Simulated scan of single mutants.
Amino acid sequence: MSYCNGKSKAIVEYYFGDKKLKRFETDLVPIDVQTNEPGNSGVCWRFAGRGVNNSDNYEYFACGTSPSYAFNGSGCNLYMDGVMLAGSGYEYLAGTNTVSRVDNMSPTSGYLTSGNCNCLAECEIKVLKDGQIIFSEKGVCPLKFHVTCDDECPEGSHKCTHNKYPGYCCVPCKEVGDKLKNIANKVGR
């Protein structure tokens, strides 16, 4: 979507899952904004079992939604969402393999541990001018953004002047309205 046609600058305010508001400003207008917000990245799963070629126990952690094992003729390979994990290095003795959902990567003492359980999905925002990326950033999902042009306020807010830079602020109408209703309800009791 194109923003700020016929204006002199664009301001993109955005935040990721940490809700820390960030700002990107450019004079290269108009701009397009693209976001990449992948679906659920899954949960952490713990694959465990005894190795085919020795008596050691192994475990492997991975993120996804559908964990499984598949027998390959000599042992069982690990799969997540239909994709084999860890190559043939993790091959479990059939019948000793287990998979369980875990809240985080918590290795069991005595096991050889590998894998990655950073299951937080990563979102990306890109600002483009004439199809060329002029700014991008990634962060933990979800991603929210809005664009304003020149010294305008975003939709759903009101512009108020004050003596500090930049000489105005944008007040969100719904938030202020809700606060006023709350005060009126308290006073009216």
Score class of each variant (00 low, 15 high):
Asn182Met: 07
Asn57Lys: 07
Asp32Phe: 03
Ser74Glu: 13
Arg46Asp: 08
Phe24Glu: 00
Asp81Phe: 08
Gly167Gln: 10
Asn5Met: 08
Phe135Cys: 00
Val187Lys: 00
Glu13Tyr: 02
Phe135Trp: 08
His162Tyr: 14
Asn104His: 10
Thr35Lys: 08
Asn116Gln: 13
Glu124Gln: 15
Lys164His: 08
Asp18Trp: 09
Lys129Met: 03
Met105Arg: 14
Lys181Glu: 10
His162Val: 01
Asp27Lys: 14
Asn97Ala: 12
Asn118Ile: 02
Met84Lys: 14
Glu137Pro: 12
Lys164Phe: 07
Trp45Glu: 08
Cys169Pro: 00
Asn97Glu: 15
Gly177Trp: 05
Glu37Met: 11
Gly42Arg: 09
Gly188Leu: 02
Met105Glu: 13
Phe24Gln: 09
Cys4Tyr: 05
Thr65Glu: 11
Tyr14Gly: 05
Ile134Cys: 05
Leu85Lys: 14
Phe61Ser: 13
Tyr14Gln: 07
Ser68Trp: 04
Thr148Asn: 02
Arg189Lys: 14
Tyr69Asp: 02
Gly167Asn: 10
Asn72His: 01
Arg189Phe: 02
Asn185Asp: 09
Val83Leu: 15
Cys117Phe: 09
Glu25Lys: 11
Glu37Ala: 06
Thr161Ser: 15
Asp130Val: 00
Ser41Tyr: 07
Ala94Thr: 10
Gly42Ile: 05
Asp27Gln: 14
Asn185Gln: 10
Cys173Trp: 12
Ile134Phe: 03
Phe61His: 11
Asn40Ser: 15
Cys149Val: 10
Lys164Cys: 04
Tyr58Asn: 07
Lys174His: 01
Glu175Asn: 10
Asp130Trp: 09
Ser74Ala: 00
Val187Leu: 13
Cys170Asp: 05
Lys20Pro: 00
Ala86Pro: 14
Asn116Gly: 12
Asn182Val: 00
Tyr58Ile: 04
Cys63Pro: 15
Asn185Arg: 06
Ala62Arg: 11
Gly6His: 06
Leu78Ile: 15
Leu128Phe: 00
Val12Lys: 00
Phe16Ile: 06
Val12Arg: 02
Thr26Glu: 14
Gln34Cys: 02
Gly73Glu: 03
Phe135Leu: 04
Pro38Glu: 04
Val176Leu: 12
Ile125Leu: 15
